[in-house]
């Protein structure tokens, strides 16, 4: 029975790694297109998303079967839960890659703006985070996962700066309203990509260390901000 269970777990992890490698490639292509202005790199990103969706369904079914048939506990249970969560994150990353590809095509003639707003750098950072998050999952490396979580702040800063820059551009030159709007949407997608990478890292820490760390910062801040009830 244990062998049967181990085989199911191995198959689940293999499928997640295959899915992750497709998503990684999608993101790599769109970010490279963003960095280099070579729009043709975006080709095939959308069609590969169908493969990602197929893996999403397959992994969902595998997790459901393992839970129903083996009723795992402790680390095994956390593995399945984290697999379900990571599956969801990866599927969203695939969609985001498609959305970024669309915006890259629409802003192909505005490469200098992308560089000035540092959206290329932002994309590079988010892509690195996703790659590290995937690697942390492959190697059960919670230290690498911690690094990913810390780096989310960098992307958030890039996002704020880019937004400010693009708004000022729109104010100074109405002709830039359309491309800048596309770029603002694009930065939002990149920022979400980094968020999903962070979530994957958090899910890995949940699996390896049995700690729930999602929303930790926000909840700590809320606790700090709320005055203690004297009653």
């Amino acid at each position: 029975m244990q062998e049967h269970f181990n085989a199911e777990i191995e198959s689940l992890k293999n499928n997640l790694i295959k899915m992750a490698s497709i998503v990684d490639e999608q993101v790599e292509r769109v970010i490279e297109a963003l960095e280099t202005g070579k729009v043709e790199l975006c080709q095939g990103v959308k069609s590969r998303d169908l493969e990602v969706d197929a893996y999403d369904n397959l992994i969902q079914a595998q997790c459901e079967n393992i839970l129903a048939l083996f009723q795992p506990f402790a680390a095994d249970l956390r593995f399945i839960i984290s697999a379900m969560m990571i599956n969801n994150q990866l599927e969203r990353c695939g969609d985001i890659a498609v959305n970024i590809a669309k915006r890259v095509k629409k802003t192909a003639n505005n490469y200098p703006l992308i560089v000035e707003a540092q959206i290329n750098e932002m994309g590079k950072q988010a892509r690195k985070m996703l790659k590290d998050a995937i690697n942390s999952y492959i190697y059960n490396d919670s230290q690498l996962a911690e690094t990913v979580m810390k780096e989310d702040e960098i992307v958030d800063q890039f996002n704020k700066q880019a937004f400010k820059f693009l708004v000022s551009k729109m104010q100074s030159n109405p002709e830039l309203i359309e491309p800048c709007s596309h770029l603002i949407v694009m930065t939002k997608h990149i920022e979400r990509l980094a968020d999903h990478a962070t979530n994957i890292a958090e899910d890995l820490v949940f699996y390896v260390e049995a700690k729930i760390i999602s929303h930790k910062k926000k909840l700590q801040k809320l606790e700090k901000d709320q005055p203690e009830d004297d009653n």
Partner: peptide, 17 residues
């Protein structure tokens, strides 16, 4: 005990090892 046991033997036992 069933989600994050403290002892390795517990982990192994409840995981069917």
């Amino acid at each position: 005990l069933f989600t994050a046991p403290e002892n390795e033997k517990t982990e192994a036992y409840i995981s069917g090892k």
